[in-house]
């Protein structure tokens, strides 16, 4: 089938192709209309990032401002720190979330008992909590005066209480953990449903051949999961310059002492613009983040297309 495009089409074949394609286009139409309304109609608003906005002229007739709206992202001595934090956390999240989500999905898919459904719904629950609530829960554990860790764990052990919110060194781990805790139930769903869609006959054949569980997982499940893993990772790479604002702002409670490890592009922009409320600058930040993601996703996709054409995004 894939070869059809590349062949020189005879008129008859072409006609058949058109006849087959029309119903497909019609089926796709509602979705495409939504994309136009929801995404492409506001898209020209990107020019805002290059404008000196004045309500008198509106977005599209305001005078141009060159790249001036972008400079605040780079002119700060913190530029390096916020970029580094954003990238490193995202890389860590992508890898760690992937490993755990796939592992949990595999375990869940192989479990036979009644607990399976219970586990699956329970680990999804944290995903339903807002960042503010999560910040309260984290505070309940880490508060210096009243927190569980200081009061119920360190105190009985005779250890000094730790000022968690004053010590930057713990936070890379705390943030990765919170992110994992919040996302694992959600992230594993997609892998789980993919695994459940696999042809069971592969496994039966393997079992008859006497393959161990571990062998089945590494030789059947993981290879079959590869396209999904690659696709999800590719899409995550596209968002590598974005950060979950709630996770980096609310959860560390905006504690200044933690900035060296919690300040990301999004929190920097937020702090920079609280007072100024400048819509052109926030647009500029968005364009910057998107552009980097765009370049990365294109290159990554190119690479994937070389290595494994079927898994590429487009």
């Amino acid at each position: 089938m894939a070869a059809i495009n590349k062949e020189k089409l005879t008129p008859a074949k072409r006609k058949a192709l058109v006849k087959r394609s029309i119903p497909i286009y019609i089926m796709m139409l509602p979705g495409l209309i939504y994309l136009v309304i929801n995404n492409y109609m506001p898209m020209p608003g990107i020019v805002l990032a290059f404008k000196k906005y004045s309500a008198k002229f509106g977005i599209y007739r305001s005078p141009w401002n060159g790249l001036k709206n972008f400079t605040y992202l780079f002119s700060t001595p913190d530029a390096l720190v916020i970029t580094r934090n954003t990238i490193l956390y995202n890389v860590a999240f992508i890898i760690i979330n992937l490993i755990f989500a796939v592992a949990v999905a595999i375990i869940l898919s192989e479990l036979t008992g009644k607990g399976k459904k219970f586990y699956q719904s329970v680990i999804l629950l944290p995903h339903l909590l807002s960042a503010v609530i999560i910040s309260y829960l984290v505070f309940a554990f880490l508060s210096a005066d009243n927190g569980f860790i200081n009061n119920s764990i360190l105190k009985p052990l005779g250890k000094e209480p730790i000022g968690w919110y004053d010590n930057a060194k713990y936070w890379p781990f705390i943030l990765v953990f919170v992110n994992l805790w919040k996302g694992i139930g959600y992230n594993c769903i997609i892998y789980l449903s993919t695994i459940l869609g696999f042809d069971r006959s592969y496994y039966e054949a393997a079992r008859i051949d006497g393959a161990t569980k571990w062998k089945q997982i590494t030789k059947i499940t993981l290879p079959l999961l590869r396209p999904t893993i690659i696709m999800l990772s590719l899409m995550a790479v596209g968002r590598i310059f974005y950060s979950d604002f709630g996770l980096f702002y609310q959860v560390p409670r905006n504690s200044g002492a933690l900035f060296p490890v919690t300040n990301t592009i999004d929190t920097y922009v937020y702090r920079a613009l609280i007072e100024q409320g400048d819509i052109t600058k926030s647009a500029a930040a968005g364009v910057y983040q998107s552009l980097v993601g765009f370049v990365l996703i294109l290159s990554a996709n190119l690479l994937v297309r070389k290595l494994d054409p079927d898994s590429a995004l487009f």
Binding site: Y72, S75, T76, F259, Y268, R271, E275, Q276
Partner: peptide
């Protein structure tokens, strides 16, 4: 720009 950097 300076304001943004200083605030942070």
């Amino acid at each position: 720009n300076e304001y943004s950097a200083l605030t942070n």
